[in-house]
Amino acid sequence: MSTANPDPKTQIILQAAWEGFSAYGFRKTSMDDIARGAGMSRPALYLHFKNKEAIFRALVEGYYATARAEITAALQVDGALSQKLARAFAAHGGETMEAMMTSAHGMELFEASMSVAGEAIEAGEASLRDLYTDWLADEAAQGRLRLSGEACDMARLFCACLKGVKHTSQSFETYRRGVQDYAALCAQALQL
């Protein structure tokens, strides 16, 4: 899972945690497993995080920070609207989506996300909606796309539909194709 935390020790801990969660699931991964994976003692790990739930929330927050940066970059690249949206929507899920959907414990990780990191997900989703809202409003003001309603409504639809693609896909390949198809559909609707 991508993280945007610049502290090297925290990065090592989060990477070890992600590897443990992916391999064993959230419930079966212990703080001992994470400490061992990070090459540190359990007491040293507790100096950084109070429990594995806090680690999981940090992973979710890192995912959203990375997604924001990658979506912003994708939307700023010159190119056709369909290409911009395809890159942005692919970045919306990022490498994390592939890792979760190909893990034997992917469904458990999706469930843990909601129960352990619901507030972080809510805040992250709001930040992505805001990013899309600002981009759509700016692009419409510059005459580069056509909005039939409010930018915030279209941004909300982007996020809701991408979540729907994620929750209804049986494999990462199905998810990837669904995201591409949705980007093409949105680009058609927004074209001048």
Rank of each mutant, 00 (worst) to 15 (best):
D32K: 11
K28A: 15
Q83A: 14
T96E: 04
V60F: 02
R42E: 10
R176C: 11
L136G: 03
L85N: 06
M100E: 11
A65G: 15
R176N: 13
T96W: 06
A67K: 01
A38D: 03
A189P: 00
A141T: 11
Q170L: 12
S22M: 14
Q188W: 10
R87W: 13
L157M: 11
K50S: 15
I71P: 00
C161N: 14
I12C: 07
G93K: 08
A183Y: 11
E19R: 04
E108I: 00
L45E: 04
E108H: 00
S115N: 10
M31N: 10
D181Q: 11
A16R: 00
L147C: 09
T10M: 13
Y64T: 05
C186G: 04
A65H: 04
N51K: 03
A69K: 00
H167L: 15
T10C: 05
S148I: 11
Q191C: 12
A67G: 01
R68F: 10
R144C: 05
A120L: 02
A38I: 11
M97N: 01
A58D: 03
R68L: 14
H48W: 09
E95P: 00
L59H: 02
Q83C: 07
R129W: 01
A44Y: 07
R176M: 07
M107E: 15
C161L: 08
L136N: 07
L109N: 01
E119C: 00
R129S: 02
A73P: 02
A183R: 00
T66D: 15
